[in-house]
Amino acid sequence: MDATHAVRARGITKCFGDVVALDGIDLDVAPGQIHGLVGPNGAGKTTLLGLLLGLAVADGGSLEILGTPAGRSLAAAEGVSGFVDGPGLYPWLTARQNLAALASLRGHDARAAGIDDVLDQVGLTDVADDRTRGFSLGMRQRLGLAAALLTRPRLLVLDEPANGLDPAGKKHVHGVLTGLAERGTTVVLSSHRMDDLEALCSEVTIVATGRVVFSGPLAKLAAENGELDYRLLTGDPAKARRIAAETPGVQVVDGTGTLVVRAPTPALDALVVRLVQAGVALRELAPVVSPLEAAFLTLTEQQETRQ
């Protein structure tokens, strides 16, 4: 057993008939970490999450969850909770009744299950006695998170947890997940929202065509991504454009409107210094595409090209 990892996978394979969903997946997730799982549709993300939740069994390789080897039968490991493909709810029951039914199925007394606590955690106290058939997608996602929290999991596995959330709801859920990680709960989540992953995750794994094409800290991903396009808003666009064109390693991609340059980090830093020394006010400097999204597009396209 490996107590240094909440999840440790080596050479995981999974096929559905002739379709290879996972092809030699390696994955390490440390305890108390929020780990993001990224990939295009059909990359194998949901299959991998299903293995962690005990909804499927790998055909080959080894998988340890919370220090215990995964069994060969369909069952969630002790201390693991979450959902894939959206939470399943009884639409004719209220939010509170849904959680009570789930607690009862698990053999817990509904009154002692902490239902009010988890409803409060996810911000659904005000609608606790409303039937879920009238819930929006974002509300259903939050109720699914509440259901997962009922068991006080040590590993929380979530598929698109921010799907359908408005900005306030997303901020609330982010706070819940961050708080759980700070208290030692490990979170593995998939998302198509790169901004969510960058805000939450310390490490990410990018999967394409059933294989890992990157796994590690976001900072390493940004460093390996090389040159990025950056948008600059300044107090003197014409002067900024001229300075950018004269700075070694900086390429002006678009100078007709908002200034867009392409540069590795050292050259970009040099440009900022030159702008400040020239008295040009720098009001905004931001990547046109986030480092995670840029790397995602590059790595997944490279993997698909090799097929």
Rank of each mutant, 00 (worst) to 15 (best):
R183Y: 01
A112I: 00
A181K: 09
S136N: 05
V176A: 06
E198P: 01
G114K: 08
T185K: 08
T132L: 07
K220V: 11
P167G: 02
A168R: 13
G138P: 10
A112C: 02
L221D: 05
P217M: 03
R140C: 08
H172M: 12
P217W: 06
A162F: 14
R183M: 00
A208M: 02
L180H: 13
C201K: 07
M194A: 04
E160I: 11
Q121Y: 00
V204E: 07
D116G: 15
T209E: 15
G210T: 13
R154W: 01
L119K: 07
E160P: 12
R140D: 05
R152N: 13
G114A: 07
Q121S: 13
A162S: 15
D116M: 00
L218C: 03
D130A: 14
S191C: 05
A208G: 08
T186G: 06
L218A: 03
L158C: 09
V212R: 08
P153W: 11
I206H: 12
A113H: 08
A147K: 10
L197H: 02
S190A: 13
L218H: 02
S191L: 05
V187M: 09
L149P: 06
S136K: 04
L177R: 11
L145N: 10
T151H: 09
L200F: 04
V122T: 04
E182Q: 14
P217D: 11
V118Y: 06
V122W: 06
R152Y: 05
G144P: 13
D130C: 10
L150N: 02
A162V: 11
P153N: 13
N163P: 08
G134S: 09
M194H: 02
A199S: 14
H172Q: 14
A208S: 15
T186A: 05
G179K: 13
S136P: 00
A112L: 11
A219L: 11
M139W: 04
D129P: 11
V127M: 12
D126Q: 14
D126S: 14
P153M: 13
G175C: 13
A162K: 01
G216E: 06
F214E: 09
D120A: 15
F135Q: 07
V127C: 12
A148V: 00
D130Y: 02
T125W: 01
L143E: 10
N163L: 11
D117R: 15
G123S: 03
L155N: 08
